[in-house]
């Protein structure tokens, strides 16, 4: 059965989106990304260090011909900086599909929703395909969809916290009311969190720290790949109802003592 993950004009087989931050070196980034079987990978946009450029670059290891590069606006705290950043990214690589995140403060890294909405409006008007990081707030999620974002990406928990899904009920509500893909972005700490996100109906999961900070990055990348697949399978299969009391698995007739 084909189960294509459609985002705007793009189509993917994998429902795992990975980040490229926090790895100890480029080689590990490359190997873990391959192990994850992800087709889409986020990157950050930063000033070139003119005085010390280094010999190697992330994109020497992550081939933009092989992966869909998803430039992000990490570190932006207002709409203007986010829009500038993504205009530059589009010019650098021709990437139209982008991850918008506008943060509120450095301690929680929670989204600044007001600035996120402003930036989304500008970017959509400039024909970007915007995947937008936001709170697990169904009202805001719908607003971002109405603006024209191609995917809404509610957090599971704060970025890099690895605490799993704080509010699974909201993820389900957001999904039930959405007409665009919902991606759980941030907070996933281990495989069961990723599986849970997809079981709830999220269309994909975006994971960085849980893989990059694992003791064995490649093994965790494979585990996340399996978890996302398992969660999606369980969602599509349709889970059994939860019951208050037991329901015997073996027939309750034909006993030898009857």
């Amino acid at each position: 059965m084909s189960d294509v993950f459609k985002v705007g004009t793009h189509e993917f087989t994998s429902r795992l989106i990975v980040g490229s931050g926090k790895y100890k070196d480029f080689e590990t980034t490359k190997l873990a990304t391959e192990a994850s079987e992800a087709e889409m990978i986020t990157v950050a946009v930063r000033r070139v260090n003119i005085t010390d450029m280094g010999k190697e670059n992330l994109l020497d290891y992550i081939d933009p011909k092989k992966y869909t590069i998803l430039p992000n606006t990490a570190g932006c705290f207002n709409a203007e900086d986010a829009v500038r950043t993504l205009r530059l990214a589009r010019e650098a690589g021709g990437w139209n599909l982008v991850k918008l995140e506008v943060l509120g403060d450095t301690e929680t890294l929670y989204p600044n929703v007001v600035e996120t909405i402003k930036a989304a409006e500008t970017l959509v008007a400039e024909d970007f395909e915007v995947m937008v990081y936001t709170n697990d707030d169904p009202i805001v999620a719908r607003r971002l969809e109405e603006i024209g974002c191609v995917a809404v990406m509610p957090l599971g928990n704060p970025i890099g916290s690895g605490r799993g899904l704080a509010n699974p009920f909201n993820i389900r509500v957001i999904k039930q009311r959405a007409n665009v893909p919902i991606v759980v972005d941030a907070g996933i700490g281990t495989a069961s969190d990723a599986a849970k996100a997809l079981e709830l109906g999220a269309d994909a999961a975006l994971i960085n720290t849980a893989i990059a900070e694992a003791k064995d990055e490649c093994m965790m990348a494979r585990a996340m790949c399996d978890a996302v697949r398992a969660g999606r399978g369980a969602f599509l299969a349709g889970r059994m109802p939860k019951r208050a009391f037991a329901s015997a698995s073996s027939p309750t007739e034909g006993y030898i003592w009857d």
């Binding site: 980040g19 490229s20 931050g21 926090k22 790895y23 980034t29 986020t42 990157v43 950050a44 946009v45 930063r46 000033r47 070139v48 003119i50 670059n57 992330l58 994109l59 590069i69 430039p71 992000n72 990490a74 950043t85 530059l88 990214a89 010019e91 650098a92 690589g93 970025i159 890099g160 975006l206 960085n208 720290t209």
Partner: peptide, 25 residues
């Protein structure tokens, strides 16, 4: 745009930002 690099003259005190892609989530 790259197509305009050759025709974009630098002037005294221009503010130039030059960026590339690095690892990020």
């Amino acid at each position: 745009p790259k197509s305009e690099y050759a025709t974009t003259k630098l002037e005294e005190n221009d503010r130039i930002e030059l960026v590339h892609m690095i690892g990020g989530g």
